[in-house]
Nucleic acid binder design. Sequence first.
DNA 1: GCCAGTCAAGTCCCG
DNA 2: CGGGACTTGACTGGC
Length: 322
Amino acid sequence: MTIIKLGYVAMSMELKNASPSKTMTFRQFSQIPDREAAIRKLERIAVSNLHNCLRLLRHNKANGIEFFRLSSKLIPLANHDELSDWDYMAPLRESLQEIKSFLKESQMRVDFHPDHFVLLNAAKTDILQVSVKTLALHRRLLAGMGIDTTHRCVLHVGGAYENKEKALEQFIENWGRIPLAIQKMMMLENDDKSFTMNDTLYLCEKLGIPHVFDYHHHLANPGEEDWKEHWQRTIATWEQSPLPVKMHISSPRCTDNYRAHADYIDPAMFMEFLHGIKGSLPEVHCMIEAKQKDLALFKLAEDLSTETGMERLGPATFRIGR
DNA sequence: GCCAGTCAAGTCCCG
DNA sequence: CGGGACTTGACTGGC
């Protein structure tokens, strides 16, 4: 028997005017003559983003969704070189406290997926340094929300740099240089171009990092492997985690553009995955990555209950097997 | 209101 | 070696 919980990414297509990712570019920032006023504006945007983040969490709770990826764009320009004197956390305490109070009362699993500029396997030390700085920002936000930071940030392995083996070894070398608090926060995902499930598992096993299996990425970049032969390895990387196994599910936009995300999830593709893992673990959390965000989650949940006859335990919770 | 072009960051790919 | 594509939501400016 496996419990399946569905989650979605960062923003809602249903809840209006609730973007948690409003921004200001550096160019806009520079064009405001009064620097202090410009910083106050950044702060107002960040507070608004956190406020909308809380609205989204409430929306999730109201709809029985207990798994959610937070936007990584909550604080515009937080890590920009020209703003190193800005204490971006100070004006956010109250907003973070509100989220903390909400999360304390709910079952919600939340995490982050920092964007593709965060590269832990970069050979260039300045890129590694900025990456660690960005992860430290994520850590501060999680801590501010009262979340145990263990296994709350998923990343890709990074660049292939024309030599995948070397790039994997560079990851291991860099890993030893990053703070333990950051290490503990990480999860690693197989990607759709360079690092396959097997490549990613090599690092996960060696360094004790949970593997987030992305089924769509695997189909786009399978390597030599049948994923089912490695699935037990993925599960094993979660043995020391306080959290259930997490995976990503999305569907290709079309055959010409296989790697891009479709609006919705193909339930047949999802069922293929579920049949592959049947009975292998008690609970799995599936992050829906689709352009229609929460609407795609609602639609998949409907499709699963009408077309597959899977037992529905809640709006976004199912059970397979007995 | 709508459309096209732009935006902090890196890597990849093509000419 | 250099410049554009990639991918993305948000925003600006022009109509």
